[in-house]
């Protein structure tokens, strides 16, 4: 049996490979989009889990000397 012969096995492998490719591309696009959304939102995100540092909050910041 030559490799040029199209067998059902090749079709299944092709569908699997194409599916994995498209899934990975979608995942990369989603992570990219998430990154842009997080940074573009201008959130004061520091550390983990959306917790912002008190020190950079203008309302609670302690003025430095001379300010």
């Amino acid at each position: 049996m030559g490799l040029t012969h199209e067998h059902d096995l090749h079709r299944r492998r092709w569908s699997r490979n194409l599916g994995v490719l498209l899934t990975l591309l979608a995942f990369v696009a989603l992570v990219f989009g998430l990154t842009i959304a997080k940074i573009g939102g201008g959130d004061q995100m520091q550390g983990f889990d959306h917790t912002y540092r008190v020190g950079i909050d203008p309302d609670t910041r302690i003025p430095e000397a001379g300010q």
């Binding site: 490799l3 067998h7 096995l9 079709r11 299944r12 492998r13 569908s15 699997r16 194409l18 599916g19």
Partner: peptide, 24 residues
Amino acid sequence: MSDIRAEIAGESGTGDAGFGDYVA
């Protein structure tokens, strides 16, 4: 090559699944 032949001949159960089977 030999592994392809084995799979075509149905000697191995691995590698036969299509993408749809994983989705299922």
